[in-house]
Design a protein around this nucleic acid. Structure first.
Lengths: 333, 333
DNA sequence: ATGAAAGCGCTAACAT
DNA sequence: ATGTTAGCGCTTTCAT
């Protein structure tokens, strides 16, 4: 591998001069010299070492992006949003898939530290564990939390409560009175906020909150399936289900079908995240949509801002989610 | 930021000893000393610098992954496959989104060189441009081409010809005789192979190849839409369309609808890539599915193999695609 | 078993 | 305007 020294020798100049050229320094170098050195660089096909440069400048122009699972359709746009802003600002992104595994999450963050990334964007799986969060953010690396919220850190998120409120209110306005709620994991603040929004909507509509209709679960389809089966077996007055995310909605849909119930004729289902939005289908879910691309962009902007200004300000940017009404909700029979 | 020197001083040992501990060297160090140093490291919360290490070892344990667009549902699983194998082997992946923009592709590769990645996995947009390819792979960085094929390089791909052959044969077996072919960009070898498979199927079935039914296009939905409109306007004997990818199929579907034709009753459509496979829908496309996760894994394995053995062998690993018959194909009326 | 010191390829401060 | 040189934080010989 060629070095700056090789170039300097070939061009019969000092390494400092070569350095001035590859870094586009304007002062202290004549146009003629610049052209001369550049020519040698091009001829030799020299590429400076980012490692060496990073060592002395203390900057790597690399950020880490820790996400749960790129295969979950919720994330690609977010990743793309991050990448687009990063690229525009000269940064590259190291992709870290955690599979919602806390150990892997920790491990990745530690490797990112070793790699001396300039900052980290992370979608944590457990925003409630304060000790965990503070261990994560220990050290002087800028952090931005994306999607999931945590306290005392910079966050880009969506107003989950408002989203859930909109979804539930939609069901209420359609005429539903007995609405079940399939919640996600209670380690997730996001989920807690969604349940809160569900409750708020019922309260404001003066509908009773039936605790037995609020089921704990996970963000997976099998959880939605099981919980819906339970609901359907026990309470035949339930005509609608608010799901904490679309995988739950998918499970709910399948359980309803298995139960001989039609969606939306017999039972209405609202999801959250809007990841089931492939066009050209006859049937699509009503769901709360998040502007994931913009959220990714915002997170990257915020991170780069912090990196540049080196100030951590514990800011929270909250996006408004959007209820998209489609085919899985209708008035009750 | 702490350095190995700080640790050495605190532990009253040399930096060499600390280095032995952080690298888990077994020889030349007593268990007692290891424990002592490790304790100091833990207390101080020291994280070694990967940059400094990389400079001397000439290894970064980082690979670059250059893909067209993570938002295209075809790619996330591929990325995930790459990431899973990389992680297992101690590598991280730098994600590079190119938007099929050749300039951006080149630029990213050049940045990856600067970062001294150990290798690059790339899904090029133009496998036919030999000069471009050889410029890309110039230098001693190991390359593996994924999805799209190029000559004289290590490749992981799918047998596109066979996939197209299966898809077209499926239509023929259903009884279709006049089958159009919406092809993708002719800069893509992948696309050329798919068209080849289409032709082969017709030939083997002794069906005439009507060149006017083979339309050039891109991999986007609007191309499929326009081409289908043309077909429908001119040739009303066409009862089936083979599409070079699913976006084309989507466009074809919409054009058919706009034309008052029902799918599959009036016209059958086969896609390629199987990216429209969201469950719980009443309608889904018949498509040729690629094992993208496995392909990603294989590419990562191959790359790490090359990195370890430092031998470039111009190997081509070809996966068999699978025709998934769903609701967009049936016998002609 | 442990330590001293050279060197990886750059940048930046200081000389010239 | 250009050059000299001291690090940046590690690993790796080579001594001891």
């Amino acid at each position: 591998m060629m070095t700056i020294k090789d170039v300097a020798e070939k061009a019969k100049v000092s390494t400092a001069t070569v350095s001035r050229v590859i870094n586009n320094k304007t002062e202290g170098i004549t146009e003629e010299m610049r052209r001369h050195v550049q020519k040698v660089i091009d001829e030799m096909g020299y590429t400076p070492s980012g490692l060496a440069r990073g060592m002395v400048t203390k900057k790597t122009y690399t950020i880490g992006l820790v996400i749960q699972n790129i295969c979950n359709p919720f994330f690609p746009k977010m990743v793309s949003g991050v990448e687009s802003i990063a690229y525009k600002n000269g940064y590259m992104v190291l992709l870290c898939n955690t599979d919602e595994n806390i150990e892997r999450e920790k491990n990745y963050v530690s490797i990112l530290r070793e790699k001396r990334v300039d900052g980290i964007i992370i979608t944590v799986s457990n925003g409630k564990d304060k000790e965990y969060i503070s261990n994560l953010t220990a050290g002087n690396i800028p952090f931005v939390f994306l999607d999931e919220i945590a306290e005392d850190v910079n966050c880009v998120c969506v107003d989950n409560e408002s989203g859930a409120y909109k979804a539930t209110t939609h069901l209420i306005e359609l005429g539903h009175k007995n609405i079940a709620c399939l919640s996600g994991p209670d380690t997730s603040i996001t989920n807690l906020q969604r349940v809160k929004g569900y409750r708020k909507a019922l309260e404001e509509a003066n509908l009773p909150i039936r605790e037995e209709l609020i089921l704990k679960g996970t963000y997976k389809a099998d959880s939605g399936f099981k919980n819906t089966e339970n609901i359907l077996n026990r309470y035949n007055d339930v005509t609608a289900i608010f799901c904490a995310n679309d995988f739950n909605a998918l499970g709910a849909y399948e359980a309803a079908m298995a139960h001989g119930k039609k969606v939306p004729e017999d039972i209405s289902i609202v999801g959250f995240d809007d990841i089931l939005d492939i066009p050209a289908n006859n049937f699509a879910f009503t769901s709360v949509s998040q502007p994931t691309y913009e959220m990714g962009q915002e997170a990257a902007k915020m991170l780069i801002d912090i990196i540049d200004k080196k100030e951590l300000k514990d800011e929270v940017v909250s996006f408004q989610p959007n209820l998209i009404v489609r085919d899985s909700t209708s008035t009750p029979k």
